[in-house]
Design a protein around this nucleic acid. Structure first.
Lengths: 149, 149
DNA sequence: CCATTTGTAGCAATATATGTTACAAATAAG
DNA sequence: CTTATTTGTAACATATATTGCTACAAATGG
């Protein structure tokens, strides 16, 4: 039910989807066009996302004919916190004031420091949760989903 | 470090600020103009926010001359989860796909259910954290902040 | 050399949050 | 009852963020 919302950023959801799809193809180079079809979006959107994932060393991409993208590690060695950090590095659970509050007001002057500490506490809780899941868990859950239908 | 960010929604931060300020004035009716000065924004923005807080029965507002807003309960009986829910009722930690994934793809078809379950787990963790803090805690922390400077 | 594919710039389209003006409705006070 | 004050809210402007799309350079395999 929660968080710092702006135009809802779905990159984490898409990233998990993309990684699960790539994982399915093992060592093959998966092409951005193919991924885009599964995600139902434009290939450039996917390539942008894959760039972030590559910078965080979660995938390896190759340009040129028979190029594409594959996982940099096994699914059980990629946890969802890494994915989150790769695509949404500076995202907070809730945003602080857009305008700096009135520094002449006692509350205005001190509330931000208090809220920042709260942010950190919550971030920690979320990060702990995310770190507990691996891409392998996701893939397994997708498989179970299939069976139950 | 985290969340579903869209154009960063700072309503929760502002709400906590506003409630702490109102609390300081006890039973007095605090005016939106005055609050807006502390928050450094427009009074209408504050009134909109106060409407949400009133609907969740966290504050009571009065129209007319010598009107304004006061807390509906004591600060120790208002926890931050209530505040969060009052101003950001349908906010999630991370957003799901904007476009529905390709249902002909196995991953595309099942990934959303898996992601939703993950959302729920994380939401629960965040909600538990938020529920642990009251407005009284915030006010106390603001006071301590003052002392340390 | 050529076909393919990533990487990326640049811009359009969309979505959301915030700021602002304006005014109706409610209320206290004289 | 009239007036000044204040909330409630609509309507619109502005700012910012995400996503989608076109175009093309660079890399690569064959």
């Amino acid at each position: 039910m929660l968080v710092t919302v702006m135009a809802a950023n779905s990159q984490f959801a898409v990233a998990v989807h993309v990684l699960a799809l790539i994982a399915k193809y093992g060592d093959e180079n998966v092409k951005s066009d193919f991924i885009a079809e599964s995600v139902n979006t434009n290939a450039v959107v996917i390539r942008r996302l894959l760039c972030s994932l590559q910078q965080s060393e979660l995938v390896v991409s190759q340009t040129g004919a028979s190029g594409g993208t594959r996982l940099a590690r096994k699914p059980e060695n990629i946890n969802l916190l890494e994915v989150y950090r790769a695509v949404l590095p500076d995202t907070e659970i809730f945003a602080l004031h857009r305008q700096t509050p009135n520094q002449n007001c006692l509350i205005g002057k001190n509330i931000q420091a208090v809220l920042e500490r709260l942010q950190n506490e919550i971030d920690e809780a979320v990060e702990n949760k995310l770190a507990r899941f691996t891409l392998a868990d996701v893939i397994e859950a997708v498989g179970r989903e299939k069976c139950s239908t």
